[in-house]
Design a protein around this nucleic acid. Sequence first.
RNA 1: GGCGCGUUCGUCUAUCGGUUAGGACGUUAGAUUCUCAAUCUAGCAAGAGGGGUUCGACUCCCCUACGCGCUACCA
Length: 478
Amino acid sequence: MKQVRTRIAPSPTGEDLHIGNAYTALINYVFAKKHHGKFLVRIEDTDRTRLVEGSEQNILSSLHWLGFDPDESPEKGGPYSPYRQSERLKIYKEYAQELVENGHAYHCFCTPERLAQMRKDQEASHLPPMYDGTCRKLKTQSSKLKVEKGERYTIRLKVPKQGTSTFRDIIRGDISFENKLIDDQVLLKSDGYPTYHLGVVVDDHLMEISHIIRGEEWISSTPKHVLLYQFLGWTPPVFAHMPLLRNPDKSKLSKRKNPVWVSWYRREGFLPEAVRNYLATMAWSFPKGKELFSTEEMVKVFDVAHIQATAPVFDIEKLKWMNGEYIRMKTDEELISILDVYMLQNNLKSLNKQTAVTKISDYKMQMKKILPLVKERMKTLKEFESLAGFFFERPKELERPVNNILLGVAEQALKGSEWNHDAMEQAIRAAAEKTNAKAKDVFMELRVAVTGKSVGPPLLESLEILGREETIARLSSI
RNA sequence: GGCGCGUUCGUCUAUCGGUUAGGACGUUAGAUUCUCAAUCUAGCAAGAGGGGUUCGACUCCCCUACGCGCUACCA
């Protein structure tokens, strides 16, 4: 069997890598690994009007963060360089020319204005909006003349008027379209750049892509691609169209309704392995209903044919749960260094080393004590800030006023006791008895006074970490 | 409008003609606890509708409905 080669082909037209692209990247990556093949990245930057500066860089770095390092890419290079379409313009032009010469494509001199008007008219008379074929009828001779005169032109695919085009999709089976309903697609734009359709076909063939795994949105243009393979005398690769990720309202996942950039998930404190795991469950399920699995485990048992054809809703709540599970799987040491990097990258000032107010000077030691207290309740790395911020900085304001009588007695009791868990608990219970209150209430008042909030890690343990002086200082400053 | 793809609990899914339709997230109740979590236990919750095929359909076929996608010199 031919070597398996898969690819993702993102366009640098957004902030960053779209989560939907991350999802197809995962499948492409896993599929390639499963078959000991190659996974590559090709940047499809053929739309100059939508280019976003820095986008390509962000896409590549998000891919790296996710752990999908390509075997070949614009960054890394490879035997089929270049991997950026804007650097392959000559190639596309040659093939477009070849298609014209073989009678499978033609020059079109229609202006954008004329085309817009044509579409408007068609719409008005309830006709399907398709190119009317004006330039298709042009004689080769007159076309040549116009080109020589320097008229702007595009090159269009000459789609047969009869017959049907069929292709096999490994997720959905055979899909066919009537040729007469396929538009004479522009292949080469007047600015010399190819459209997506010419670009993918040429590059996928030249780069020897064996399996095209891409989003469902491409199903309706696949027959055009199949025609191109045929006209160019090439064997088409295997197609697999992934169901699209959706918003809770079932529409195609969009930035207006959902966070879509991978960098957002990174900033919010999601772990790449959790994102990968969650994405995997969107269209595929691990045997025996196993929910938590690594990408490596997935590689072993994955089978594209078992991809669901139904478009799933992206549920951030479940991702959060999964992320929490992954956080708990980490050892304390691992989590500390992950948090360290995370806090640095996201500039969580309240947690930085300089502002720590505890008496423990060694940051790592401090983290070692704090982490076990909050690890069980974190769902994202970001939550470390709200959960443990008070260790590093005195709360600026209290969530609610505290009961000063209870607090006074508790403060006295704590002053007299020794600093260990049992003694503190005893002191607090004694204070509660003295004021005729419930121990529960005393704990609560202490918590709010010391941490500023009524929820958080266990109080006694927290006090031990803060230390006697800091605790008394906080109580006295109320 | 046309063409295409899809339709099992609120959400992600299992079932590859015979099950009390299973699991997970979320949710509800309880246990536990100094709060919140975490954990454990229990509960609620599903085959869009209609026709076929079959001894028997969630599963296969058809129709309808609904959802989504495409319908650009965007990808």
